[in-house]
Nucleic acid binder design. Structure first.
Lengths: 197, 197
DNA sequence: TACAAAGTGGACCGACGGTCCGTATCGTCG
DNA sequence: CGACGATACGGACCGTCGGTCCACTTTGTA
């Protein structure tokens, strides 16, 4: 029964890796540009350690991403309205999407890395299911849309990391401009009006 | 000035490669599962030939994709309404998206391969720009939406290959169900109603 | 202090994308 | 028809990367 205490160096290394990876992904232009070996080196850790802790490349990316998104998640789950629970759904849906967009803008490279198909479908990632659930439920409350589950998918697709990246990097929109466009679009989807065919 | 005639074997090989790749991508579950070497072998061709003709893996995928989508493209550019030109924009937008969705349903694996971030952003692919232009212009005619360019991006995002794949393979929807959901959603976006906040 | 569990790191492996170049094939022209 | 140059071929070869493995070190316990 006496359980051994977790080793201190393990935790320290975990943090070091997370920090190093975060840094590297943020710096690099393409997610593919950062190799596991680089991350290991930057963290001052052996490759073996890295794989032991995170399983594979994907696991590492997910872990970094999870750490980064802690704050938004908390804000959505227990923060003040309209982002947090309690606000009228009509206000909350745009707030949710705006928050997610903001996060992707702030963590573009990391998000692209996560959504890279090479890392398995983004739709399998735990974070996606979570967002989808939140948006779907809020959407359902509004009655604005015939199929909240599908609409949630469609709206979330509008803030896909590579699309955001494209809008900013290629089309030259500023973050604020993208937010504005998205807000209008979401407004249109939520607008009262003919439903169905 | 007398130009040499192109060699016959070159053209033949090109077709063989295209066919083999098409076949392999369709069969394989994950695009990553098909290697250039496999394609070369299946086409009865050396690896060097393959890279010479298509530049790199990406080029090959794009070429296969282009060949496959010839038909839809023609239907959109010069086919009968509502898919082809001439139909009222309000009818054409749903038709366009439905056609694109249908294509992705029929060529799921290939589409996933093309949109794989490893193959550069899908937004850089020539085919995306083309679709975006068509949808944007049709959308602009409807006056249903404040920013046709953004709305086109958002609507196209709703039929991203990996999302479609997820809906079918994980959520278990049939192709027809997805079409129905998408149709409703597009209808909502196009519906007359409050614009903006 | 001694001992074992937990953790470490880097050599190693197989696979893959991409290059290179000696060789075979095709079209042309005398 | 024969020979020649351009063109294309193909597979050996290379560098890199994700992932594995295991001899060795560190940590906590008694």
């Amino acid at each position: 029964m006496t359980e051994r205490k977790a080793r201190a160096d393990a935790a320290r290394n975990r943090e070091a890796v997370l920090a190093a990876a975060d840094e590297l992904f943020a710096r690099s232009d393409s997610p593919r540009g950062v190799s596991m070996e680089q991350v290991a080196a930057a963290a001052g850790v052996g490759k073996g350690t890295l794989f032991r802790r995170f399983g594979d490349r994907n696991g590492l990316i997910r872990a970094v991403f999870a750490a980064r998104s802690e704050a938004v998640r908390a804000a959505v789950e227990s923060g003040p309205p309209p982002l947090g629970p309690g606000a009228p759904a009509r206000d909350r849906v745009p707030a949710l999407l705006d928050a997610l967009l903001g996060f992707k803008l702030d963590n573009r490279h990391l998000s692209v890395a996560l959504e890279d198909a090479g890392s398995g479908s983004p739709y399998e990632a735990e974070y996606y299911g979570w967002w989808h659930g939140v948006v779907r439920d809020a959407l359902a409350e509004t009655d604005a849309v015939p199929d909240p589950a599908f609409a949630a998918h469609a709206l979330l697709a509008a803030v896909r990391a590579d699309l955001v990246e494209h809008l900013v990097a290629v089309e030259g929109l500023s973050g604020e401009e993208v937010r504005g466009r998205l807000g209008e679009y979401v407004g249109k989807v939520l607008a009262p009006g003919t439903i169905g065919a």
